[in-house]
Nucleic acid binder design. Sequence first.
DNA 1: AAATCCTACAACCGCTTCTAG
DNA 2: CCTAGAAGCGGTTGTAGGATT
Length: 264
Amino acid sequence: MMGMMSWEVGAAEQGWRKGPWTPEEDKLLNEYVNLHGEGRWSSVARSAGLNRSGKSCRLRWVNYLRPGLKRGQITPQEEGIIIELHALWGNKWSTIARYLPGRTDNEIKNYWRTHFKKREKSSHKQEKRKAQLLKLKQQQENMSRVSSHADTDKLLKVTDQENPENQQNITVTMHPSTSTVEDHYSPIMYHHDNNIIASNWSSDQYCVVDEGLWGGLWNLDDHPQNDHVDTYHINKITTTQTQATGFTFGGDSNNFYNAGGHIF
DNA sequence: AAATCCTACAACCGCTTCTAG
DNA sequence: CCTAGAAGCGGTTGTAGGATT
């Protein structure tokens, strides 16, 4: 275990230790930050007697040592929030993490990748079938988009109660993504209160999320353990008259639709 | 029993954004 | 304003350990 690992060679060149943190390093960092507080990460390293870069120290603290972090499995409820917010904002992991107290952006990102990443190991036969289906779906998608004559598939009213003047309308538009093949993620199945709100579109199916979903899961009322963490409330959701019948997601290896959003 | 494959996730890297001076 | 350094972000990689062949 204590051999000359490759990362040790690289670390020697750079002057910083790299790779997994040891319990001793954790202890040093923990004690130092508890005593002096967060921030000034580059000086933390040396002051705490750690041969680590500030970046590495910050990451370790934020993702692992920081108090208030939840350990263990993502709950179905958390999963639902992740799915919804990812649909809203895409890979805005840190933004999503703010709505999941005790969870880190890294954790959420990893969770999404490992659980919803599109299975790439499907057979050629399946791929061809998907390609055919996709064409159909795209036609349907285009038609429905035209008929709704608006980018505004959803209009949400999001209120930050700490700063009521920051009330925002968020319009979610569906658009062809420019992401790489690796970014094709899809939930397999999601239930909330016995309602299936997202179903297997990682294989051949579209997912149409019902309107009712938004009222349900968006009733967030977070109580972060750390008082410096902002508390967000999403307390009212409104929809426009002109909106389409709901969210439509699609996916495939060449083209897919991702949910993005803009705030105005 | 060994080799290989697979999965999960911690940690790194490069880039962008923020902030203090 | 401008700029440099710090902090933050998201994509990606490395690897431990479990599953499969």
